[in-house]
Design a binder for these strands. Structure first.
Length: 107
DNA sequence: ATCGCCCAACGTCACACTTC
DNA sequence: GAAGTGTGACGTTGGGCGAT
């Protein structure tokens, strides 16, 4: 599976490998940032490298964030199931206690 | 076969919050 | 206060599935 995403003026491609996703960087487009650095190619390259690093970290952070969210939702669903069972049991108990009470009252 | 719709997963951006 | 981190919002993609 491959994916291509356009974000602003950059093109990002990624694919699913055996060990998860691997990143295939597209052409790095240097816009006004490069000229803002006085056109220094080393500084621009450094900026681009920093940006790639930040994007990669954020990509992993987003994955982890989604994983945690899914886990949290599963936890909540489990809790709902447990509470529903408890509620059912308490209703049953109340019902039998009421019946017992009515029987004793009739005697 | 293909079209349209829905869903899950993804990457990126923006922004709030935390850490140093 | 700058750098790092977590997360909501958004747009994109591919796969599944029913209708035609």
């Amino acid at each position: 599976m491959t994916n291509t995403t356009t974000a602003g003026s950059t093109i990002v491609q990624y694919s699913h490998g055996q060990d998860g996703d691997f990143y295939v960087p597209g052409e790095i487009v240097l816009t006004q940032n490069a000229s803002g650095l006085g056109g220094n190619p080393i500084m621009a390259e450094d900026q681009a490298r920093k940006r790639e690093l930040r994007l990669q970290k954020n990509r992993e952070a987003a994955r982890e964030c989604r994983r945690k969210k899914k886990e949290y939702i599963k936890c909540l669903e489990n809790r709902v199931a447990v509470l529903e069972n408890q509620n059912k049991a308490l209703i049953d108990e109340l019902k039998s206690l009421k019946e017992l009470y009515c029987q004793q009252k009739a005697e």
